[in-house]
């Protein structure tokens, strides 16, 4: 394109053409952040579950912090690379990014609160399951609505259903034993993050 004065008709064509060229499309790697958090949560949960079964030592629960540390660092790195490769940020990218920032901040606040309780001798860590299976699924459903991706909505609702079940268990004083609750937690994250992440990458690879 050169710097030439267009006719009125040409102006209209330029505007239409540019709008079409900037249409939001999936890009390969769009699902990677979801896959990292999904697989990481599944791996750490499985590790905690196995170690609890083998050692019966509650100290292995500190391993949960690996999710925050590894996931947080990976997210910063992947997001930066992805933004540069994409070359632009759409309004929906901005909205989704703010949504997950809000979810992440509330997660840190919740963790800090649970740590505070722990140092006071009160075990409130089951509240983190509620966070993981209420706040995260809600954010995912919202993202699914924004980017019009059904797998996010279905995955989010599956996680949310398990979250509601968790809340009912806690309210009903049912102990969340590792041998049945952790497998359920793994299923929730596979449905919420692993499957939608792969679907998104598949769509990016096969879109015309």
């Amino acid at each position: 394109m050169i710097d030439k004065q267009p006719t009125e008709r040409e102006s209209l064509e330029i505007i239409t053409s540019m709008i079409n060229r900037t249409k939001d499309r999936y890009m390969l790697g769009d699902g990677n952040i979801l896959l990292i958090w999904g697989y990481l949560t599944v791996a750490v949960t499985a590790l905690v579950w196995i170690l609890l079964a083998l050692t019966h030592n509650n100290a292995v629960n500190w391993l949960w912090f690996l999710i925050w540390i590894v996931g947080g660092l990976a997210t910063i790195r992947i997001t930066r690379k992805h933004d540069i490769r994409k070359g632009m940020k759409s309004y929906s990218d901005k909205l989704v990014s703010r949504l997950w920032t809000a979810a992440g901040c509330s997660g840190f606040a919740m963790t800090a609160l649970c740590l505070g309780f722990a140092f006071s001798g009160i075990d409130s860590w089951s509240a983190m399951f509620v966070f993981a299976l209420i706040v995260i699924p809600l954010a995912e459903i919202a993202q699914g609505i924004i980017i019009d991706e059904r797998s996010f909505i279905f995955g989010g609702f599956t996680g949310l259903a398990i979250g509601f079940f968790t809340v009912c268990c806690i309210a009903g004083h049912i102990v969340l034993y590792a041998n049945w609750y952790l497998p359920l937690f793994i299923i929730a994250f596979v449905c919420m993050m692993v499957i939608p992440g792969h679907i998104l990458n598949y769509k990016a690879r096969h879109q015309k």
Partner: peptide, 28 residues
């Protein structure tokens, strides 16, 4: 009212931000 400036503005109206490489590619 210039081809290239109008193209740049049309793109930026549609996205939150765009880098130089992206604009160069889309406007050819």
């Amino acid at each position: 009212h210039s081809q290239l400036r109008l193209a740049i503005m049309s793109i930026l109206m549609n996205v939150d931000e765009a880098d130089f490489v992206y604009l160069k590619e889309k406007t050819e």
